[in-house]
Design a protein around this nucleic acid. Sequence first.
DNA 1: GTCTATAGGAGGATAGAC
DNA 2: GTCTATCCTCCTATAGAC
Lengths: 200, 200
Amino acid sequence: MRENVDTRTRIQQVALELFTEQGYEGTSLREIAERLGVTKAALYYHFKTKEDIVGSLVQDRIAAIQRLIAWGREQPRTVGTRRELIRRYSADLHDGRHHEIMRFFERNQTALRNQPKGEMMRDRMLDLLDLLRDEDAPLTVQLKCSLAIFALHATWFVFRESGITDADRQRAALEVALELVGVSEDLVGENSGNPSVTLR
Amino acid sequence: MRENVDTRTRIQQVALELFTEQGYEGTSLREIAERLGVTKAALYYHFKTKEDIVGSLVQDRIAAIQRLIAWGREQPRTVGTRRELIRRYSADLHDGRHHEIMRFFERNQTALRNQPKGEMMRDRMLDLLDLLRDEDAPLTVQLKCSLAIFALHATWFVFRESGITDADRQRAALEVALELVGVSEDLVGENSGNPSVTLR
DNA sequence: GTCTATAGGAGGATAGAC
DNA sequence: GTCTATCCTCCTATAGAC
């Protein structure tokens, strides 16, 4: 029972790493098993299929983004709300290993397209982008709002192997992202809550 | 000889489409052949391997970006140069089907990682990002410069299925990208050349 | 929980006829 | 240039012993 949980978690860790490095379809269950020192069949005790491993990886993220979107939809569609959405998304991204899941997701868009959980994840991200932009605004403004999410994701890509801490990355990305969604015209509403609260 | 060229081109078109929709590894040569109404073996007359199809797709892009980088490295590292880099990259992207190649490339990062041409493409894009940012500048400024490229690529993702023309997309993306690399402090140098000249 | 063994299929690639 | 036929490899997944 204890090893049960442990092995399951180790499978997830190794799978996430290999899926991100070599791609979902480029990684076989044999490789995962070998790296763990077990056989393929052992994996099937913990996960019904290969897809299920992915499902177990992304389901937490899907739920977190859904919560964020649900919150956002109850707020007024102001710049202040958008800025808070960005703050919460950023905090969540840097909490735990969540950004690693997003990297895996980004790099395997096509492979995950044929999977229920993959499509769900994609749909939620699109919902979030839609929530961030005002469809009546000029295209340039809409694009900048959407780019804010990209900014938060892109830090690891842009500042690769530099001697930069994760905290530095997060700070810079957040600052740029907030700038992209716009300067709040309504500072009263903006700071009414805890600005750096996480999602959970 | 005439059909030779034709079939080769049709293979490239179908392959690009399927690779982009379903992923490189998720698309079999059988699928490509079937859609063209030929057999797998016929593909092997035109391309030595599956990798070779990818190579034929990206090699033009690699060359174009290399030319752009070569040009950029000869210029002073000013905001004006960066703005011109963005303009040229944007013009090139919208000339022909180049942005479709980039979409394919973005969506298949992991799969292309094991291929020589894929890595070359990736390295050139990283070179371009490095050329656009000043390593001594604050992280936020560097991030914004890099994001400019993302802005040019992201338009199709952000404004999906809207009734927006490609020209509108390009215009908005270019405006945002130019804003991200910074306002030119040196307007004299900036407009010395033809501002919308393409790469070739 | 993990193993051996294997089913069952699909994929990339090649040989050789036409 | 395109076809048929085939090889070989690797994959996901399952059955059943320990």
